[in-house]
Design a protein around this nucleic acid. Structure first.
Lengths: 186, 186
DNA sequence: CATTTTTATTAACCTAGGTTAATGCACGCT
DNA sequence: AGCGTGCATTAACCTAGGTTAATAAAAATG
């Protein structure tokens, strides 16, 4: 469960009659938003390919990146889905991205009818929990330099698909600081 | 779902025949560990009263606090439960604490038999996800001063039960820095 | 009740990272 | 091709927080 099999996950979910019926295939271009901070977005996005960043815009006009979703995955705004609240963050495509979109409520309903699917989704949410735990650890315990190294080690191919600005915003530092760190390490 | 009803949760879980049978009531004293970093702990702890901190010890000999569990809650080490890995953090009682302990595997098994319980646990894990999202936001986007204010606002009564050291370790700063922040705010 | 052991505060100094601004590159665009 | 926009680097300066250390108050501990 260290790595999660999204191919299998997507197959299982998207083959389900409910989602074959209510799922909408969408092709987003680089620069498009899946949803934006401040909106309520009750959907689930099953991502087949592409690259998406979740980011916050602060009151001081700064941007911080919550996470990247790479190639395949499942995404959405939890607080919108569960509490019908405005999403606290935006989802922006950094590359052309293909998704199937459907309402979260359907997802929840199906979960309690189809035990096999419930199990699959349970596994996904456990995996996500582990990832979030790691992120929390890195933000809390690692210096900027350690955090950068950990990010590069864990995502060797992703690094080349991102700007230094976005990597820095993910680590919680400025691009200038990241430039200095890279110089220090080289 | 903004606040989670642990009274109801604990009642439902602990009334279940499986946990009435395999659950062990334990009374920990202030200073006791529920489990320690480096050990595998496959248990779930249903907490009835007390105060527990989850903390990391880094290689440089520093301590950082992952979270506090206050009064009532459910806790354990996810990576131990799911992956049978050594826990990356320790759980220490800051006050006398009463729990019921049982193996996580049982928990998982029961979930797939008892749909009502599965629903309850699903709600809990969603609530936990929301909490972790907020924590991620605060670590990533807030300054130490903003983080302290947010912590005090969200946990007005908890603050008096913690030392300044532990609050600082939770915010990711030193107690000295927190002392300066308090002075600045007063 | 006296004695360690923790905790909180403050001061002096240090350092990593933030800020502003200038420069040179590498693109995507018409 | 030529233009503009965004990206990466570097420098100079500033600031929040880290470090060490001294002090005093408050808790545990016997």
């Amino acid at each position: 469960m260290d790595k999660f099999d999204f191919d299998q996950f997507l197959t299982r979910v998207l083959q389900h009659p409910t989602f074959e019926q209510c799922g909408v295939e969408l092709h987003y271009k680089k620069g498009d938003h899946l949803f934006s901070q401040g909106e309520v977005c009750r959907d689930v996005f099953c991502m087949r390919s592409g690259l998406v960043k979740f980011y916050f815009n602060t009151l001081e006009g700064k941007e911080w990146i919550k996470s990247f979703i790479v190639d395949k995955g499942v995404l959405g705004s939890r607080s919108s889905q569960l509490l019908e609240m405005a999403s606290p963050f935006s989802a922006l495509c950094l590359e052309d991205t293909e998704v199937v979109r459907f309402p979260y409520k359907r997802f929840e309903e199906v979960c309690f009818e189809d035990l096999e699917l419930a199990r699959t989704i349970f596994q996904f949410s456990q995996w996500l929990g582990l990832k979030k735990e790691l992120r929390e650890y890195q933000l809390l315990c690692l210096s900027a330099e350690e955090g950068y190294q950990a990010f590069v080690d864990a995502n060797p191919t992703l690094v080349d698909r991102l700007t230094q600005i976005d990597i820095a915003r993910y680590l919680g530092i400025t691009p200038i600081a990241l430039s200095r760190i890279k110089k220090r390490l080289a």
